[in-house]
């Protein structure tokens, strides 16, 4: 069987076991889906030949209907995580570009393109139009003489 199916369901112990095809659900997707359930269930992963087994036990008391619903939610989460993974993979380059631009902008860093935009003002590095390099003694002397 391709899709996940309930191997075992026991309302007395609030447990159930789901079986998933390894070929359809990569381990990353399984981890991500299992992680979402950690706050409301005890999760144990196992492998049985070409299938993953997911043992879930509710942290609280669960009826048969609630256990069945939880298995459906787990399957939905698997699909959501698989899709999320696919979208991230397809847009990896765009995500990286946007992130690096955002970080550069937040850091106030200078981009190489900023230098291209600035025009040449024809000044030498020794030019000192604001008189910054003039020693204060010289400035003071000039004022005193005048």
């Amino acid at each position: 069987m391709g899709h996940p199916h309930i191997e075992k369901l026991d309302p007395k112990t609030h447990t159930m076991t789901l079986s998933l095809d390894i070929g359809l659900y990569p381990a990353d997707v399984l981890y991500a889906a299992a992680y979402v359930f950690l706050d409301r269930a005890y999760v144990l992963l196992d492998r049985a030949g070409p299938r993953f087994e997911v043992h879930l036990r509710g942290k609280g008391e669960l009826t048969e209907a609630q256990l069945t619903a939880m298995s459906g939610e787990f399957e939905n989460e698997l699909l959501a995580q698989a899709l999320r993974r696919k979208v991230i993979k397809a847009n990896q380059k765009i995500i990286e570009d946007i992130t690096s631009q955002a970080i550069a902008g937040a850091a106030g860093g200078t981009l190489p393109t900023d230098f291209l935009a600035a025009g040449d003002d024809g000044m030498d590095f020794l030019d000192d139009p604001l008189g910054i390099a003039v020693p204060w003694e010289d400035k003071f002397k000039k004022k005193k003489d005048a």
Binding site: D28, A34, L38, Y42, V43
Partner: peptide, 23 residues
């Protein structure tokens, strides 16, 4: 609480976190 079951949850969460940061 169930120490064994909580331990298993932590082992799984730690594994998922490590795999994610490794990637």
């Amino acid at each position: 609480g169930d120490v064994v079951a909580e331990f298993c949850n932590f082992a799984l969460a730690n594994t998922a976190g490590r795999k994610k940061s490794k990637k």
